[in-house]
Amino acid sequence: MTETTTPSTAPHRRWPLLVLGGVVLLAIGVAVVAATLGGRGPTASQPAPSDPSAPATVSSTAPTSADPLPVAVFLGDSYTQGFPPVPAEQRWSTLVAADAGWTEVNQGLGGTGFVTTSVMSACGLEYCPTYVERVPGVIAAAPDVVLIAGGQNDRAALAADPDRVRAAVDATYDQIRQGLPNARIIAVGPSTAEPATDLIVELDAWVQAAAARVGADYVSLIDPVVIEEDMIGPDRVHVNEAGYRAIADRVLTVALAD
């Protein structure tokens, strides 16, 4: 008997496989070329299309912040610290800094003066140093502007030893000028809720003289008197919000003069 051979179908099945393999290889080649020529994503010269609904972004090459504001240190007593406790934005020092475009560094401590220290009930610290003792802290802040205000807490020392107070006024201004030769200094004389006594007037004159000697600007709060009756707080010692605003406005007449 003669054996019959059935033709193999293998060659017919091989063609689709070859075609499929070619397609896959072609797709891979196209992908590689695309990645090489331009498929890496957006670049600085080829930004991606923006989504109108997406929030705006700042370019990495643009400045990230404005030039820093001048730093101003305020050295003073409870009038500078803000007493009775008031929102920071209502203190005269904060009002001045905001209107003048300064960054405020508030170094006010209640109850203190050029030679007078205080306690926690007045300033919040176990020991509240004098102005002279706080000069190193003023210098360490490396400010562009220094405002030295007050002195009315030295009334007892003024009566007992005026020469000591005057020497402390001179030392405060001299040391700050020596440590900050290029800083602007603004001297703000003492102020009181009651009419100024002869001792306060004399202290104000010493502050003015010290300011002139070190090339500082000078602001008087008693000539003419800045604190009026309706600006005095319930304790009859400190001022209310209107008083802080009035002090700020007086200081600003000099601070904004240049």
Rank of each mutant, 00 (worst) to 15 (best):
D161P: 04
A122L: 05
M231N: 10
G38L: 07
G82E: 03
V115F: 00
L26Q: 10
D174F: 03
A187K: 06
P162K: 10
G76Y: 06
V201T: 15
T130C: 03
G243Q: 00
L125F: 03
Q208V: 15
G189H: 05
P7W: 05
P55V: 02
V146K: 07
D154C: 04
G29A: 14
G29H: 02
T5F: 07
P42N: 12
R155I: 14
T117I: 03
L109Q: 14
L37Y: 05
A171G: 01
T172H: 06
P7N: 07
V132R: 14
A156L: 15
W102Y: 15
N106V: 09
Q90N: 09
L221T: 09
A212H: 09
L221D: 06
H12Q: 13
R250D: 08
V119M: 04
R155L: 14
Q175W: 02
W206H: 12
V135E: 04
V24T: 13
V115H: 01
D144N: 13
P190E: 07
I139M: 08
L17Y: 10
V58Q: 11
L26N: 09
T2Q: 10
V115E: 01
T64N: 08
A255H: 11
P190R: 07
W102R: 07
V225R: 15
V32M: 15
E241H: 04
G179R: 05
F114R: 03
D198K: 04
V254K: 06
L199K: 13
Q175E: 14
G113K: 10
A35E: 14
V30M: 13
P129G: 13
A34K: 07
T6N: 08
R91D: 00
V201M: 12
F83G: 00
R236Y: 05
Y218R: 08
W92N: 02
A72R: 01
D217E: 15
L20M: 13
T9L: 13
G21T: 11
A140S: 14
G38S: 12
R236L: 13
A44N: 12
Y244C: 00
S59H: 09
D258W: 00
T4G: 00
V96H: 02
A54D: 04
R250M: 08
A66M: 14
W206V: 11
Y244G: 01
A257T: 12
S191P: 03
Y127G: 05
L26T: 15
A27N: 10
N240T: 03
P55K: 01
I186G: 07
A183N: 02
D230C: 00
A255P: 08
D67I: 07
L158R: 14
L125R: 12
L26I: 15
R166S: 06
T36S: 12
D230A: 05
S191C: 08
V188F: 02
L180C: 02
A209G: 08
P181A: 10
L25C: 12
L221F: 07
S60T: 05
V145M: 03
E89A: 06
Q107T: 04
I28L: 15
V32N: 12
L147W: 01
A54P: 02
I232R: 12
R134E: 11
A56F: 05
A246R: 04
P190M: 09
A56W: 06
C123G: 01
I247Y: 00
V237P: 00
D198T: 14
V135D: 07
V19K: 05
R166I: 03
V165I: 08
L109H: 13
C123H: 00
N153L: 05
C123V: 01
L26R: 06
Q46F: 10
I186P: 09
A205E: 15
